[in-house]
Design a protein around this nucleic acid. Sequence first.
RNA 1: AGGGAGUUAGCUCAGUUGGUAGAGCGCCACCCUUACAAGGUGGACGUCGCAGGUUCGAAUCCUGUACUCCCUACCA
Length: 901
Amino acid sequence: MSENNNSQNTATHLSDRYNPADVENRTYQWWEDSGFFKAQDQSTKPPFSIILPPPNVTGFLHMGHALDHTIQDMLIRWKRMSGFNAMWLPGTDHAGIATQSVVEKELRKENITRHELGREKFVDKIWEWKHTYGDRIYSQMRRLGDSCDWDRATFTLDEGVSKSVRKVFVSLHKKGLIYRGKRLVNWSGPLETAISDLEVEHKQIKGTLFHINYPLEDGSGFLTVATTRPETLLGDTAVAVNPEDDRYRHLVGKNVILPLINRKVKIIADTYVDKEFGSGVVKITPAHDFNDYKVGKTHNLEFINLLTKKAEMNENAGVYAGLKVQEARKRIIEDLKEQNLLVKEEPHVHSVGHCSRSGAVVEPFLSEQWFVKMDQLATPAKRVVENGTIRFEPESWTKVYLHWLNNIEDWCISRQLWWGHRIPVWYCAKCEHHTVSESDVSACEKCGSTNLKQDEDVLDTWFSSALWPFSTMGWPKDSETLKTFYPTNYLVTGHDIIFFWVARMIMMGLEFKRDVPFRTVYIHGLVRDSQGRKMSKSLGNSIDPVEMIEKYGADALRFTFVAHLYSGKDLKFSEQRLEGYRNFMNKIWNAARFALSNLADFKAPVEGIKALPNIANISVFDQWILTKLGEVMKAVDEAMESERFSEAANALYHFIWNEFCDWYIEFTKPILNGVNAAEKAATQLVIAQILNRITRLLHPFTPFISEEIYQKLPINGQACIMDQYPMVINDKDLLALGSQQSAFEIDLVKEVITAIRNIRGENRISPAVKLNVRLGVNNDQVQKILGNNRNALIVMGRLENIEIGEAGNLMKCAVSTAIVKDAEVKVIIPLEGLVDFDEELKRINKTIEKLTKDISMLNAKLSNEKFVANADEDVIAADRILLAQAKVQIETLRDALTRFQ
RNA sequence: AGGGAGUUAGCUCAGUUGGUAGAGCGCCACCCUUACAAGGUGGACGUCGCAGGUUCGAAUCCUGUACUCCCUACCA
């Protein structure tokens, strides 16, 4: 491939294979250097903006991003070309847990823990890491072709964003919407931090249900409780039964003795207990179970914490202190067995929460945390979706969104991490007052003491993400950027972060900007592997998009995504399919290469894209392809406007490959090689115009190859990326050269050629054999059309000779009927001496069979009085024509059949 | 348990107001026809999950049902 490097810019010496590596980096650099990605804060153009969901700053670009970005870039490029002031704002996320974990892992290689290093030095280390790897994902985005406005790139720990975060925190706190409380939260032992409900993944686990006897205090027997977590009995502060349960009613109010530690606890009654499950008796451990927590609150029970921050047994666990939970469980079961208190063990499948970051089992853990009260924020966030101010696409996500908001719980926003926005609260050692402030505080606002300590915790990463649409645009200042670009037009993301991110952005946008952050939430599916599994490191089925780009080119990857973007459905990624679109890129490349080589002597017209060929000189092929161009432009426009992006991409694929390449180029070869200079010049102009439109139409999908070809065209502008997106309304004069009559003519010629090819193919006649063909026509107009296209028929049908006129003698001839509208052409090929007739007889019989079926079905339909009475007139008329045509065809074939006998 | 989505050709999937089922890949046959073998031409292949209903007519609308997937919640 490299031998082409030096000649790549010479139109006549293009490689016969499209080599993306020769094009992509160079083109991207040129776009960026030329400032084409930049949007203006003030402009006469209408604004169009998208905020990129910020990827993790130290992460890699994965397939999910590649899909997500392709959609956004397509929208941005399309709108930019359509006259909008298109702004795509990139950024990266500090990703608290993820990034901190990565750096901790690095330290572990040197046998250092973050605690040994200390907070300040550890955070410095992470910054170092960020500076080293923070731009990696940006350069990968450039590989994909992302046309972001890079000058606006923002990092969540940038000063501006950090200010926004503090302002929002203080403001919500003032309103009473942020509060601190000792609550049971999801705790990740390995990370030593609280995590939110959303960060917990529930997995079905095969566990054991242990039935344990708790001796009654009065020695009258035992109460059997069933539990999957016997180790927590050390923290039991009650045993509960259902108040309606006759078996235990008499015991309520009495005490049982906890085994192993011999602590006395009450027997209480609560409707929460299901009589049917287990033994109907539940041990209550308020500090380690969410339901027990509620029961503990209502019954005023004691809360006994059994765990350390590492989620190991603590001093309250007595002899079991220091053990891991699993070990403690084992030991306790052994000890219970020894005391004959374990009644039975039965297998039990239940779901257990796991930390989505570390994979560890999540422990409910009692601790002091900060929360955001959600009810008040959720109400307006529901309303804007209900009333259509924000639209979800596909619409079905609306329900999911609303359901979640209707059942929302308060959001635990504090994390016991070091990497992130530190909570802006200072505690006074003297008066215990806590000062909440936007700026750093050196003295207690109440007593003036300088003996202050800032809260050690940082905020959940999603807290800053929730502000992203306005914190990146200069808020709280009323900046020009905000005025122009807020609210944004689209939010493009996968459905996995609707709750984490989308919902919270809507709440915060409404709370602080008094307006929605975006108009449309475009939800796409997840990229899965070819078997439909999630791509994950542990499965080893991840595919690296950059590797795919290197192998097949960015355009092919992008086109693969867009062509399969069907209404939010997951996308099974297959390399084979990508290969197919790589081939399409090559097809485009070669069509352009061919066209350009035939435009070597073509002089670019001064009118540029407004240049029209002389109507007297254009061929029917030119007229036809312009008709098709008009159709595809309309189809693309309608599809893009209604967000059916795959339809737009597929319409272009079909137009370029099946109409422009397969037919138009083949039809016009004789003209380009012919002697009629005027006709040739007209065709050259049409080709130049078609290529100009094709490249622009393709640009949002396949930016690199379209720009590369565009730059070589005789009719072009400065840059494809900045030129106008083709619209029917702007090309009226050119498209007016097309006509329905030309479409009819070419359709007929295509049908005849296809019929000839069919006879040749089915009879296995070598393409090297030139055929003699007779075309039987019954109509002067049809005869004239065929006569005019005699040359095309001969070349594309690989004919020796052609006669057009009466059908004549059909003895030992293959016959096929080409039908377009009311025109019928009998295609007659004498086979004597070419083939034995077996194949032809098979072909004829096969066709007769099919026609017989058609006829009987059409007859049945048309003789049905109710059909004739109820169906649309044009439907009936169409069926009548079909029937008549079928009858003609079958007669011809039967006739031919007899002449072979 | 509640909610959502899906079931169409060997595979992956389209199918926009109901009107004789489509694409790509794969497969078979023939071709290196001077843009492209990452190509060309032709061909085979589907009772549209199942059962009812509405209708002259259903892949499409309605009801039920089976299976698959996803989400949320619960599981002592």
